[in-house]
């Protein structure tokens, strides 16, 4: 993404479940300071939080990048984790490969990707098994 986009970058630590979500918290704070509508901010922060949690529990962390242009906010989550074998299956509500120890932490209900689709205006998943996953979400702001 080029041009006049504002760009924010965050490292998502894959070894620390406790800190998972900190990038989303910061994005929420930044978007509030920029004066966006609370409903839009909520959609963006929930969707990004789901994606950030996924990077921590399914991959080994990664990079989160947020681009802000006058009419759109784009969130890109990139990891070099195991990849997703069957994206259609992964998109189904309730489908999860998360182990029990993740479920006991409150995640792994298989609602993350469906939530990301529901809360964003556009969701693109690019994933190669053994290479990694890149998720791009767009939110129209105008």
């Amino acid at each position: 993404m080029t041009g006049d986009a504002l760009h924010f970058h965050y490292d998502v630590d894959g070894n620390n479940f406790t800190s998972a979500g900190e990038a989303s918290v910061q994005v929420k704070r930044t978007l509030r300071q920029m004066g966006y509508h609370p409903d839009l901010i909520r959609r963006i922060s929930v969707a990004m939080y789901e994606g950030e949690i996924n990077m921590v529990i399914h991959a080994k962390g990664g990079d989160a990048d947020v681009y802000v242009t006058p009419d759109c906010i784009t969130v890109i989550l990139k990891d070099v984790g195991p990849g997703i074998k069957d994206i259609n299956l992964a998109m189904q509500e309730g489908y999860s490969t998360a182990p029990d120890n993740i479920r006991s932490l409150g995640f792994g209900a298989g609602m993350g990707l469906p939530n990301m689709k529901r809360y964003s205006d556009e969701l693109k998943i690019d994933s190669v098994v053994g290479v990694g996953t890149t998720i791009e979400m767009k939110f129209k702001s105008a």
């Binding site: 609370p38 922060s45 929930v46």
Partner: peptide, 16 residues
């Protein structure tokens, strides 16, 4: 909730 970890606060925060 009966869950006790910091993600309960982040989840609530994300949803306002």
């Amino acid at each position: 909730t009966g869950l006790l970890n910091p993600q309960i606060v982040r989840t609530a925060h994300m949803l306002d």
